[in-house]
């Protein structure tokens, strides 16, 4: 059933409405577990759209196997998605930096408060992101080290390539995931694919993983395909590639490739002079799990990340 989570009037003849689709088991007992799938916080990250569609399609195809409640929130930032805007149009702050919201705050903060209240109490929340328009990511779960003990066991079952346990940062305390984890709603952040595009293979992979976790939780009794075992990393094992020159970046490797330290990963070109401004090499050996897709770079632009210490 499609429900309105929160709605506010815009100035002229329109409402901003965040909606969810609640799928219930055929014979509810009142004791069911609840899982929430949320995406579309950033309006340019669309990978989660296909996941929502495909998950709902699978659930509707075999309704008898569903033993819990599944809430699907495909568009936390509907104005952003419909206008190809990463943030909330007409609002300065990143939506994923104002959680848990403020009932008495400005309009968007009060909307976020109502959204958070709606999500609270779920037995699991999966927050799907797609990096941004600049970077392609291998399917991964990112976990704040403070919540690793609870979340890593769940993340291992969701069919991603790896689980990145990263250091805590104060500024990240206002994300949806941090806020929900703080109030005891386990929330996994999935990053995969690239902004403004849909990578169907990643979408199918994650749907299989979500069904697998649902099965573990007793929410799903239908079939689940093969689920991979992820590599679990820490911050110390990740190598960053940042540009040192401005120009046009052309990568020479594919995402998911194993590279050796010193290997040529790409070049920053100067199309005006015909020169190579920078030959970009691997700072460590390992798996390329982030690759820059958008060619225009400045000094500092992230060109990729490598997960070190992974066996070939």
């Amino acid at each position: 059933m499609i429900e309105t989570v929160v709605s506010m009037e815009l100035p002229v003849d329109e409402k901003l409405t965040i909606r969810k689709n609640r799928i219930m088991p055929t014979h509810p007992s009142g004791e069911e577990k609840r899982i929430a799938i949320v995406t579309g916080t950033h309006g340019d990250e669309l990978e989660g759209q296909f996941v929502c569609y495909e998950l709902l399609r699978r659930l509707k195809a075999e309704p008898g196997y569903l033993k819990g409640i599944v809430d699907v929130y495909p568009a936390l930032n509907p104005l952003g998605i419909d206008s190809i805007t990463r943030g909330i149009p007409m609002f300065d702050l990143d939506m994923n930096r104002i959680f848990p919201g403020n009932e008495e705050g400005p309009m968007m903060e009060s909307m976020v408060y109502r959204l958070t209240e709606d999500l609270k109490g779920a037995d699991l929340c999966v927050d799907i992101h797609a990096s941004n328009i600049f970077l392609m990511e291998l399917p991964q779960v990112r976990i704040n080290e403070l919540t690793a003990e609870t979340l890593v066991p769940l993340a291992r079952k969701i069919n991603v390539d790896f689980v990145w346990v990263h250091a805590s940062a104060t500024v990240l305390e206002s994300t949806l995931a941090y806020s929900l984890n703080c109030v005891g709603t386990p929330t996994l952040v999935v990053e995969m694919g690239v902004g403004m595009r849909i990578t169907k293979t990643y979408g199918y992979q994650l749907v299989e993983g979500i069904l697998n976790v649902m099965k573990e939780m007793g929410v799903w009794e239908g079939s689940v395909g093969e689920v991979r075992t992820p590599v679990v990393s820490t911050d110390r094992e990740v190598g960053y590639l940042n540009a040192d020159s401005a120009g046009i970046y052309v990568p020479k490797i594919k995402i998911g490739e194993q590279v050796e330290k010193g290997a040529l990963l790409g070049e920053i070109l100067n199309p005006l002079t015909g020169d190579v401004e920078q030959a970009v090499t691997a700072p460590i050996s390992g798996l390329v799990f982030t690759r820059r897709e958008y060619p225009v770079v400045y000094s500092g632009s992230l060109l990729g990340r490598i997960l070190g210490g992974v066996e070939k």
């Binding site: 940042n242 400045y298 500092g300 632009s301």
Partner: peptide, 26 residues
């Protein structure tokens, strides 16, 4: 209003990081 390439806010990047992303470097 924000950095033209990635729309990040330089006033949300302090104290910065000289090996980080563009606006962190600025």
């Amino acid at each position: 209003r924000f950095w033209p390439v990635d729309n990040t806010d330089i006033n949300r990047m302090f104290p910065g990081y000289d090996l980080g992303e563009t606006t962190q470097r600025i």
